[in-house]
Design a protein around this nucleic acid. Structure first.
Lengths: 352, 352
DNA sequence: CTGAAAGCGCTTACAG
DNA sequence: CTGAAAGCGCTTACAG
């Protein structure tokens, strides 16, 4: 592969001059510039980004560590992140933690070794000293979706509490009284927050959320199935199940189908995270939709702000309930989104 | 961040010795080794992969350019690719072409600039001189799923012809005679091959595939909807529609649902690429399943063979029909997988 | 406007 | 076994 030396030789100038035209430095004569450009074209020269990064100490790459690539929520997030990053001149390297802290650390380490300019993370369950150390040591880090309390790191996320209240109101109106939740790992914020939101919303109706009605999953499909089977084996199974993410809902559907039960007559189901297929399931599934694209864009903006030396702010967007038929609504109805709530707090007080 | 110099100073040795213990070079005294290790631990030193890459001319990174991250088929592929690559000591950088040749080229260029050790590509429609030039110039390249004829590049893919024949037999048995296909872009092999396979299979039953029954999509959802609406507007709409990928099937479902039609009574639907949600749609959808994980693993094996100087072979695996109820089967039936066919051809004659 | 030179953080023959 | 030195491909003060 041609190097800058080859270009310099072909153009009859020094490598410094080649570098200058490549980097649009003003002080280059028109003549030199055109000879360099001609040589570049003739040789099909492309600057070696590795060498450039070593010299400039920037890679123009962002790391994105997500919980699970098989989760459509995260792929939609990844897509918007890449798009926003590209618009700002950065590329993104995705690491799939597969919901495993060890795999997450593997990716964080690899990304750090490769000297990415900044890190976007949706932390897997468990604590990650590695990640926190990196942030403390000065690597620009931003949390998306999930976050680790106490870290001096901006957080970009959706607050689902209002939507969960709307969901519980919907379930209550339809006569469901015995409500269960398939929770995510307690070691993640989304794992615990969604349970808390659900419990609080139930309390407003005087409904308790007993331990037997809180199943502990890991955000992946198999756990949703296992937990749902446990619910169905209860002496008194729940009327309605709320899955804290779409993959656990997939597992729940498997379990419900395997028992020959029918939704919503035998059991109702609602899900955190809306995906395109929920319109076409049997029955269509009531879900809480996050503004995923907006989250990705806001997260990139915050991270690039940090990278480029500006202050970054935490961002909290609103989620909303999308009513379909899986809980017993008579017909597909869309609760219109309320005026989008949007709170921003400076990073110093970034614990939302 | 601590550099190798800092470690050397802390350990009281030269940077050469530090480098040797880091790279497990045999000729280092036990004493030096332990002092270096202690210094590494004390400083939390991590070698700079950028500098190492510049020096060794290898990044231990693989590029993977896929058609669309929002397509569950590609994310499953990406997952198995990353897993297999990790087991061999490589990390993978995913580029999402979003089915656009220009975006594909952007990612190929970026990956090449970053000097990835090899490239796994499922080419977007249209020809990519950039990609072909890179392969010709010696960058290890392997095609997965889709490929470009005439290139001296190994191809790892599934052959769906037998499964398509099984599908047509299934449709014919159920009485469907007017069959349509939502094709992918003609500029991709999977776009054209699936139409050919379908046409050939129909011909065996004396059924023609007229132009009005071949809709041209782009493998994304919106096109599936548009094409399906066209089919439904025909004076004589088809009895059954075969979508060449799962996202176009999603669009087809949208169109069918919007007209208030019912599957399979009003119209049958079958899809290339099986995904977990197809068990739970209304009705469950008959699909052709690829051995996606195997494809990803075989592709990595082939690419790493090339990178490490061994010869790589093209691999063709078999796809299989999974019958559900969307075409009118009375009950869920699984056609047992036949003995897995597996053909391998040396790369020299890699045009499968 | 231009070039020689230093240096980014590593690895690796070479000499001892 | 160990270290001094060269060099990977760039960028960027510095001097002219």
């Amino acid at each position: 592969m041609a190097s800058i030396k080859d270009v310099a030789a072909a153009a009859g100038v020094s490598v410094a001059t080649v570098s200058r035209v490549l980097n649009a430095h003003p002080s280059v004569s028109a003549d030199a510039r055109s000879r360099v450009l001609a040589a570049v074209a003739a040789l099909g020269y492309r600057p070696n980004a590795v060498a450039r990064s070593l010299r400039t100490d920037q890679t123009h790459a962002l790391g994105l560590v997500i919980g699970d690539v098989l989760n459509p929520y995260f792929t939609e997030l990844a897509r918007s992140v890449e798009e926003a990053a590209r618009a700002l001149g950065y590329s993104v390297i995705i690491g799939n933690a597969d919901e495993r802290p060890d795999l997450q650390d593997h990716h964080v380490r690899t990304l750090l070794d490769r000297r990415i300019d900044g890190l976007l993370v949706s932390p897997a369950p468990g604590d990650s000293p590695l990640l926190l150390d990196a942030a403390r040591a000065g690597t620009p880090v931003v949390f998306v979706d999930r976050w680790i309390p106490g870290a001096e790191v901006p957080v970009v996320r959706a607050d689902g509490r209002r939507a969960v209240r709307d969901l519980v109101a919907h379930l209550h109106l339809l006569g469901h009284r015995r409500l269960a939740i398939i929770a995510g790992p307690a070691g993640t914020t989304t794992g615990s927050e969604r349970v808390t939101a659900f419990r609080d919303a139930l309390a407003a109706y005087g409904l308790p959320l007993t331990d037997e009605l809180v199943g502990h999953g890991d955000f992946q499909a198999a756990s949703g199935r296992r937990v749902t089977e446990g619910f169905l084996d209860l002496p008194e199974p729940p009327d309605a199940v709320f899955a804290a993410d779409n993959l656990m809902a997939l597992g729940a559907l498997d379990a419900i189908r395997a028992r020959g039960l029918r939704m919503p007559d035998d059991i109702a189901l609602a899900v955190f995270d809306d995906i395109p297929w929920f319109v076409h399931t049997d029955p269509p599934i009531t879900a809480i939709a996050q503004p995923t694209g907006d989250l990705g864009r806001a997260a990139v903006r915050a991270l690039v702000d940090r990278i480029e030396g500006r202050t970054a702010e935490s961002v909290t967007l609103d989620a909303r309930l999308v009513v379909r038929r899986s809980c017993g609504a008579p017909a597909p109805v869309l609760i219109p989104p309320t005026s989008p709530m949007r709170r921003s707090t400076p990073v110093q007080r970034s614990t939302p």
